[in-house]
Design a protein around this nucleic acid. Structure first.
Lengths: 230, 230
DNA sequence: GTATTATTAGAGTATATACTCTAGGGAGTC
DNA sequence: GACTCCCTAGAGTATATACTCTAATAATAC
């Protein structure tokens, strides 16, 4: 593997583990047992490394959110989208942690990320549209669909931050992909009221698969789970 | 005003303006035209300053989310809660920006913030319960209400980050309280499907007051339009 | 008054961080 | 061998940052 690619890989790994703020270029070089000079031969600065990683992330999500228009959408499709999006969030989880700082430090990234968000929102919107066409959810006015899509985006992108703050100990390393995917439960909660009778039970069953387990619930929201069981 | 309080006030101001990461203790001292030694006489370290500011934030939100149980809840109450929460988010907006780093750097803060989150979730849950009692929304099973409350929390706490990333330029200073309050539109979107027929139109009208206007996307001018429609 | 305590200034420090610079190795080509 | 091109090492630097230390001054108590 080329040094350049090794740098990207190690950076992503360290960023995900410790957070971008806690990882210096010297750390990255040391982790790879290469010299700082070598690292800076391949990248002009830290921002460049982050930007390249973002491009990979972007490509991944864009690929997953490419919606086939040649056939009706199925529940399986919807599940795939949800799973994929959370997989992507997991693989590049450092990114949303320090998002604001990263965007402020790199105009290029800011611009690209903004367009990326727009594409994601459009894709979510289109998925809702297709779900309605497929008779899975009731069709809704455009304005409502847009607001719903935005809420889905907000829930998806903020779910991880919530999980981390809900943990008692320093949790960046402890968080698991499985916990993260409980975010799917929250997203499906958003869809619940709009399901058609024909699909309601099936989506409810699907949602149930992502329900936070009791032990998680105790850690995450003890007050609420207690309320729910009385 | 005591130096100690001045430090807290200036810190909050600078944090909100530039982000905690971009504000050093030396900056704070310089901004107040006091010496670093003086600052460190009043606070052991930067984390202590942040922690004290959090305590203020916590107190504010706890105060606003104290739900009166002696009378039926009204739409006015609900509006008040929403407005207050977004006011609070605005006044301490630096906090959510670097939340994860802050919690990782201060165990005390992590613990307190975790409990704070729980209280907020409980309060949101209770508000839904009271809204149902008042006949504004349909009563829902406890489990669903818990999931809905969590979604409200996710939307509320992530709305500002979304706004900032949606802007093209560096926007930390440019963001306005009015834009922020369009988050209320998103929260009310979550409630829409559960409204009772008796209240549906009234809530729809309320929601409309917070609808993002086209000009908000790039510029800021909602003050007039919203004041006029009130 | 004097003694004590609270507050402040400001120079200074240890450490970290992003990044630079120079020298040179290794592999291919002629 | 010599030349070129890509890559690498590693010492070094300018700057920043959180924080300390000492001495002096203001405020208060007696």
């Amino acid at each position: 593997m080329k040094t350049r690619d090794k740098i990207l890989l190690s950076s992503l790994e360290l960023f995900n583990e410790r957070g971008e703020r806690n990882v210096t270029t010297n750390h990255i070089a040391a982790h790879l047992a290469i010299s700082p000079g070598n690292l800076y031969y391949h990248f002009r600065n830290k921002s460049d490394i982050i930007y390249e990683i973002f491009l990979e992330y972007e490509k991944l999500v864009d690929f997953y959110l490419d919606i086939p228009e040649d056939r009706a959408m199925t529940l399986t499709d919807m599940t795939f989208y949800l799973e994929s999006v959370f997989d992507g969030l997991w693989s590049y989880r450092f990114f949303h942690r320090d998002l604001e700082y990263l965007l402020d430090s790199d105009q290029r990234l800011r611009q690209d990320y903004r367009e990326f968000t727009q594409r994601c929102l459009t894709a979510i919107n289109r998925i809702f549209e297709r779900l309605a066409e497929a008779g899975i959810i009731e069709a809704q006015p455009e304005a409502l669909r847009a607001a719903m899509s935005l809420n889905v985006w907000l829930v998806v992108t903020n779910w991880m931050a919530f999980l981390k703050t809900a943990h008692a100990e320093e949790t960046y390393a402890k968080l698991t992909l499985n916990e993260l995917k409980q975010g799917i439960y929250q997203v499906l909660t958003l869809e619940l009221p709009y399901l058609t009778p024909a699909y309601r039970d099936r989506v409810l069953a699907l949602r149930e698969q992502y329900r936070p387990t009791l032990s998680d619930q105790d850690e995450v929201a003890p007050e609420l789970s207690r309320a729910a069981s009385r």
